[in-house]
Nucleic acid binder design. Structure first.
Length: 487
RNA sequence: GCCCCCGUAGCCUAGCCCGGUCAAGGCAGCGGACUUUUAAUCCGUUGAUCGUGGGUUCGAAUCCCACCGGGGGUACCA
């Protein structure tokens, strides 16, 4: 089609969606007319010209499609209509009818081209098979692959129900900095960026944890944040350099309270977003309805491996047990580190769940409070479903002196890696010195939860625009030049 | 970072293993027929230096090397 912008209207009044029409006119019989006039708009996905009549399939992203029925006698500009391309945006007005073959349709009397698809759409039947193209040109993928659109819709419903549930429970949503002078709250390699007028480097946050707990010190006793965090590490079907986390903190609560909160939150979010607590995990089905099983890490490791491996074991003996199980550990590893390593390597992946794996070794949990009765462990749990970590939570460590000691210990091990800034967050310690009440904290990976609810295996499927290597065209002019023109 | 696999017209694929009328088919596009189609159908037709660059060879989509992009695995990831 040859169209100029002059031919395109500035607005178009839509009076019905395809989904609404299918609902309202479900009882129309074949070859029956409704007498109702509507106007619809969307993308033309198929077109069948039959001489003096023409059928088109309109997709308006409402979840259903509606057929457009045009005839030479009744349709304005019929000849042009019959020449529309697959992918063109069309607004059409006319009576709702059912064709002789029983397909609900809008019999087009007037119509407008709303946007021309100048680039050809992918194969109407096969769609986009090239995975790279699906991620790089998601705007095409969303039309061609309904399941892609569905996943983003599910994600949206999930997050909005999560907000609603937390607000109902008295939590307030807050926003903490993304630019951190010190990358804290998780042991991940950060992205570094530079602020020109302050002339200093910042790290993109790897977790909001330390700032959220500062707010609890400040008296905001139930806070949560849903936001992006950034980790400069490898990509995989389960890891994206930027991903979305929910973190929440509740004063006066311990990790047992947080378990109850977690299982109710996740099961209700599942109900609200996919309508069921049963989700498919490979060839199995798991049920997210509470209560979830609670089991100690030491117990679940014994259960799965048949080996007694506890945090208070002699370190050398623990390492021998790991070797027997085929798990490589570093030479000087403590029993707690070995326990955690064996759990992650051989146990976690086998757990269908949902299950709370509780009481982690203190060495791998620098921000969690010591267990009230078990030596060498902390009050921490991970929620596991389909062999993957869904949530991580603990009774927060509130003692500033012990926190300083834990940071120092982490600094020693992190110091071996020259890329890891091992700076201690003195301001956070000072916040603790002003007093953090007993607090329970929780982190949920939103992308992983979406994957579980959508039964998909790749994190890229639940992120609209996943991180990819830029194409040469996207890299554009060199950074130095850009900086010079901006400053 | 390392290992394995993939890259053919706008889209989906065949050909690659055993180099030589192999650059093929379908959809889309373009021209034509058609008043009830559902990936409409029928007739005709345009379109690809086979990811890029080297090499081997009389001859390479096909074999070799490097690079680019992607996928999977692995490593890093309190």
């Amino acid at each position: 089609m040859n169209s100029s912008e002059n031919d395109i209207p500035y607005s178009f009044e839509v009076t019905a969606t395809a989904a609404e029409l299918h609902e309202t006119h479900a009882d129309l019989c074949p070859d029956e007319r409704s007498g109702v006039s509507v106007s619809v708009a969307g993308r033309l996905m198929l077109r069948r010209v039959q001489g003096r009549i023409c059928f088109g399939t309109l997709d308006d992203a409402s979840g259903r499609r509606i057929q457009l029925f045009a005839t030479q006698t009744d349709t304005n500009e019929y000849r042009s209509f019959a020449r529309l391309s697959v992918g063109d945006w069309v607004g059409a007005a006319g009576e709702v009818i059912k064709t002789r073959r029983g397909e609900l349709s809008v019999e087009v009397s007037t119509w407008h081209l709303l946007a021309e698809a100048r680039r050809p759409f992918p194969d109407k039947w096969h769609g986009l098979a090239d995975i790279d193209a699906r991620y790089r040109r998601r705007y095409v993928d969303l039309w061609v692959s309904p399941e892609s659109r569905l996943r983003l819709q599910t994600r949206s419903r999930m997050i909005s129900s999560m907000r609603r549930l937390l607000e109902e429970k008295g939590f307030i949503e807050v926003e903490t900095p993304m630019l951190h002078p010190i990358a804290g709250g998780a042991a991940a390699r950060p992205f570094v960026t530079h602020h020109n007028s302050l002339n200093c480097d910042f790290y993109l946050r790897v977790a909001p944890e330390l700032y959220l707990k500062r707010l609890v010190v400040g008296g905001l006793s139930k806070v949560f944040e849903i936001g992006r965090v950034f980790r400069n590490e490898g990509l995989s079907p389960r890891h994206s350099p930027e991903f979305t986390m929910l973190e929440l903190y509740q004063a006066y609560a311990d990790y047992r309270d947080i378990m109850e909160l977690t299982e109710s939150l996740i099961s209700e979010v599942a109900l609200a977003s996919v309508g069921t607590t049963e989700v498919i995990a490979g060839d199995q089905i798991l049920n997210l309805a509470p209560p979830w099983r609670r089991v100690g890490m030491e117990e679940v490791v014994a259960e799965v491996t048949g080996c007694e491996l506890t945090a208070d074991l002699d370190a050398a003996e623990a390492r021998r047990t790991a070797a027997k199980l085929g798990v490589e550990v570093e030479a000087g590893s403590s029993a707690g580190q070995v326990l955690s390593e064996v759990y992650e390597r051989v146990v976690e992946g086998t757990l269908l769940g949902p299950v709370f794996v509780c009481d982690f070794p203190v060495e791998v949990s620098p921000l969690a409070r010591r267990h009230r009765s078990r030596a060498g462990l902390v009050e921490r749990f991970e929620a596991v479903a389909a062999g993957r970590e869904l949530a991580n939570a603990f009774s927060e460590l509130t003692d500033p002196d012990e926190q300083r000691g834990r940071f120092a210990f982490q600094g020693q091990s992190a110091g071996q890696d020259e890329c890891e800034p091992a700076t201690i967050d003195e301001d956070y310690l000072s916040a603790l010195e002003y007093g953090l009440p007993p607090t329970g904290g929780l982190g949920i990976g939103i992308d992983r939860l979406t994957m579980l609810l959508c039964a998909t295996e790749s994190i890229r499927d639940v992120i609209a625009f996943p991180t990819l290597r830029p194409t040469p065209a996207e890299e554009g002019e060199p950074a130095e030049q850009r900086q010079a023109t901006c400053s």
